[in-house]
């Protein structure tokens, strides 16, 4: 679905990635795990076209594109809800900007509010609800993007452990029920092990893939599975090795 080949990006003398490659299969869930500052968020910015790449190619469904532009949806670790809009208006932003039929979009958004446990909160403002609810609303907005590819930039990192657990299953909903292809940045190895079909362990700058891991099995995976514990220790060792360099 998405193929990134020989991607290069420098900031002055600082090389962020050199000849970086990535391939996402349709309807897959790929997690990027790497040390802080290795360039994961820069990769998202380059893919989204916010930051220009220095070289390499991006191919989306067989077509060469300079960047994904408006071909992907985006969910950030901050919920990025606009405080002057109600939750429903926030969720409707993508369809409003795209000029879609308001009645049809509202019906769809209301159904998603119900599906994600936000029914009854449509007219609330972001400042009136909890962080977990805000992030669920951000997820509704992400689902309102009619885009197959979803970029998740540490979407749950600002939440407490209990809220995270409940939202992790909702992220799977994106992939399974709504048939999205997901690329997620996370610092939480356990989160990657629970959710992802493929985990890419990344090195420090210049960023490259240290290993590709396929945890297998049925999701949400149980973290007390000895095989997953072994993988977790292996990934931690890889990352520790990077930090020691």
């Amino acid at each position: 679905m998405l193929t990134v080949s020989n991607l290069n990006k420098h900031f002055g003398d600082l090389s962020i990635f050199e000849n970086f490659n990535l391939h996402l299969a349709p309807n897959g869930f790929t997690a990027l795990v790497g040390p802080s500052g290795c360039g994961k968020s820069t990769l998202f910015n380059v893919l989204a076209g916010v930051v220009a790449k220095d070289g390499g190619s991006v191919t989306l469904q067989g077509r060469d594109v300079s960047h994904l532009g408006t071909a992907s949806a985006y969910m950030h670790q901050k919920d990025l809800l606009l405080p002057w809009f109600t939750l429903l208006d926030n969720a409707l932003l993508p369809s409003r900007i795209a000029g879609e039929n308001p009645d049809k979009s509202t019906t769809k958004a209301r159904a998603l509010f119900e599906r994600l446990g936000l029914k009854g909160f449509e007219s609330y403002r972001p400042g009136e609800i909890s962080g977990g609810m805000r992030q669920r609303c951000a997820l509704v907005r992400t689902l309102m993007f009619e885009r197959e590819l979803v970029l998740l930039d540490e979407p749950l990192s600002a939440l407490d452990a209990i809220t995270r657990r409940s939202l992790q299953s909702l992220l799977l909903l994106l992939q399974v029920e709504f048939k999205r292809t997901i690329l997620m940045i996370t610092h939480d190895i356990e989160e990657a092990l629970m959710l992802a079909d493929e985990i890419l362990v990344l090195s420090g700058r210049p960023m490259r893939v240290l290993d590709q891991i396929y945890p297998g099995g049925t999701k949400l995976r149980r973290l007390d599975d000895p095989r997953l514990i072994e993988i977790k220790l292996y990934v931690l060792n890889l990352l520790q090795g990077e930090l020691n360099k």
């Binding site: 076209g49 408006t70 992907s72 901050k78 606009l82 993508p94």
Partner: peptide, 24 residues
């Protein structure tokens, strides 16, 4: 910047972004 990126990814033009984001 994060909000600007979000609007860019939603495909908003300058006037839509002005009305919905910058002005408020």
């Amino acid at each position: 910047q994060e909000f600007r990126v979000l609007f860019r990814l939603m495909g908003a033009d300058f006037w839509q972004t002005l009305r919905l984001l910058y002005w408020p």
